[in-house]
Amino acid sequence: MKLQSRIPEILGIRYPVVQGAMSWMTDAAFVAAVSNAGGLGMLGPHAGQTANPTSNEEVIERMRAEIRKVKSLTGKPFAVPVMISENPALIVPMRDLIIEERVPVVLINVVLDADLFRAFKDAGIKIIYRALNPTVESAREAERLGADVVVATGFDEGGTLPDKEIGTFAVTTHIAQAVGIPVMSAGGIADLAGVRACFALGAEGVYIGTAFLATHENRMAANVKQMLVDCSADDLLLFRTHPAYYRSLPTELAKKMYEISENGGSRDETAKLMQGTVGMRKGMLEGDLAGGYISVGNGITQIKEIRSVQALIDDLMQDFAA
């Protein structure tokens, strides 16, 4: 089977696979490994860090340093999201940083804004648009504003889940039929069969997070990587929080949040226990299974081993191999 996609030419990469911008879980070495293996690596929030920043200025300078590290490790394209925290005051400084550092690709993951799109287009930066809650209307508006690629994210993903419980396959079909630019599927994709299914539904690429966590180059704690191999989607706990839902492997903290959610507790209660992404840092980066949570997607069922980034991409992209 030979699959076709416009995305490699648009983004300047070999394969139509983008590594997701996972909070705490990326650093320059990991991102460069993805890009060198033929995909598009992406720095995420708190890239390369082990502690929360103390100021907005520190957020920007940390990211600047990590961007420059990526450039020292690869000559291939990579990406940075324009929104790397819940603080909207950081959007303009991040925009300026991405342009100043000539980052090849930007992930726009904020409210659609014509000036923001125009700034990146004028700088010659390729734009991937990914809505938290994907709709036909937002995809069409992103296309009108100049997005090069749009991501259709389903409820099967890890991280912050959409507020509507629409699966990846359904949302892929919905969005792919509505726009003329290439669409990437996101959510629960972790093997070749998943990639083929997305393409059969109209996608031209895949945006993947969880499967990349189970790689040697990723900075996630070793005990948590082993949990990815040992567990399946049946083990995941889904709970209500802000802005909508999260799911986690069954840590002690996740069990508490799940119980609160199941017993009619408020989103405020679970959000307080999560401590924003602090709980994610404790669980996923530090391997603290008591005080942290482990946010992953439904695709963990397909994760059978910990391997290199190159091996993962070669496996996922078999249909594009020369």
Score class of each variant (00 low, 15 high):
Met1Leu: 11
Leu3Trp: 08
Pro8Trp: 05
Glu9Val: 10
Ile13Ser: 12
Ile13Cys: 10
Pro16Leu: 08
Val17Lys: 02
Val18Trp: 10
Ala21Arg: 02
Ala21Cys: 05
Met22Arg: 07
Trp24Cys: 11
Met25Leu: 14
Ala33Asn: 04
Asn36Ala: 11
Leu40Trp: 10
Met42Thr: 15
Gly44Trp: 14
Thr50Val: 13
Thr50Ala: 11
Ala51Asn: 05
Thr54Cys: 05
Thr54Lys: 10
Ser55Glu: 01
Glu58Phe: 05
Glu61Lys: 02
Glu61Leu: 04
Met63Val: 15
Arg64His: 11
Ala65Ser: 10
Arg68Ser: 04
Phe78Gly: 07
Val80Tyr: 02
Val82Met: 05
Asn87Pro: 04
Pro88Ile: 11
Ile91Ala: 07
Met94Cys: 12
Glu101Pro: 03
Val103Phe: 13
Leu107Asn: 15
Val110Gly: 08
Phe117Val: 10
Lys121Glu: 09
Lys121Gln: 12
Gly124Met: 12
Ile127Trp: 08
Tyr129Asp: 07
Tyr129Ala: 04
Val136Arg: 04
Val136Gly: 01
Glu137Met: 06
Arg140Met: 14
Arg144Trp: 11
Val149Pro: 09
Val150His: 01
Ala152His: 00
Thr153Gln: 09
Gly158Gln: 04
Gly159Tyr: 10
Gly159Thr: 02
Thr160Arg: 09
Lys164Gln: 13
Lys164His: 10
Lys164Ser: 12
Thr168Arg: 05
Val171Gln: 00
His174Ser: 14
Ala176Tyr: 06
Ala176Asn: 08
Ala178Gln: 07
Gly180Trp: 06
Pro182Trp: 09
Ser185Ala: 15
Ala186Gly: 02
Gly187Cys: 02
Gly187Arg: 00
Gly187His: 03
Leu192Ser: 12
Gly194Ile: 00
Gly194Val: 00
Gly194Cys: 05
Phe199Asp: 02
Ile208Arg: 00
Ile208Ser: 00
Thr210Asp: 06
Thr210Cys: 11
Ala211Leu: 05
Phe212Leu: 04
Phe212Ala: 02
Asn218His: 07
Met220Thr: 11
Ala221Pro: 09
Met227Pro: 11
Met227Ile: 10
Ser232Val: 00
Ala233Arg: 15
Leu236Lys: 08
His242Asn: 09
Pro243Val: 09
Tyr245Val: 09
Thr251Pro: 09
Glu252Cys: 01
Glu252Lys: 08
Ala254Ser: 13
Met257Ile: 07
Tyr258Ala: 02
Tyr258Arg: 00
Glu259Asp: 15
Ile260Cys: 01
Asn263Ser: 14
Asn263Asp: 10
Gly264Ala: 02
Ser266Asp: 00
Glu269Leu: 02
Lys272Phe: 05
Met274Asp: 03
Met274Lys: 08
Gly276Ala: 01
Val278Lys: 12
Val278Asp: 14
Val278Ala: 15
Gly279Asn: 01
Gly291Lys: 02
Gly292Val: 09
Val296Phe: 12
Val296Arg: 12
Asn298Glu: 13
Ile300Tyr: 01
Glu305Asp: 15
Glu305Ala: 15
Arg307Asp: 11
Ala322His: 13
